[in-house]
């Protein structure tokens, strides 16, 4: 993703505190949804079904050596 997302207005920052929290932010003034896997990796889509498919499949790509998701900061 190239441009930072400015979708949370006012910022509902992390609402759920679990380890495996997926987040989808509707980018303001657009039709774009930005999803974040709990590892922090983002993905843009204009189709919520496609986006959920991508997010739910993403943990399969995680390696065993990544950062603890709790330490990942993906807030824009």
């Amino acid at each position: 993703m190239s441009t930072p997302v400015r979708a949370d207005l006012p910022p509902p920052n992390r609402m759920l505190g679990g380890r495996s929290v997926y987040r989808v932010v509707w980018q303001l003034h657009t039709d774009v949804l930005v999803g974040y896997c709990w590892c922090g990796t983002p993905h843009e889509s204009v189709d919520p079904i496609e986006l959920w498919d991508w997010l739910l499949a993403h943990p399969d790509t995680h390696s065993g050596t990544e950062t603890d998701p709790a330490e990942t900061t993906e807030e824009p």
Binding site: M15, L16, G17, R23, V25, W26
Partner: peptide
């Protein structure tokens, strides 16, 4: 107004703000 959605996959909770 756009929404923000979160899902806790372990606790099985959905949050829509």
């Amino acid at each position: 107004t756009p929404i923000t959605t979160e899902v806790d996959e372990e606790a099985n909770v959905v949050y829509v703000s």
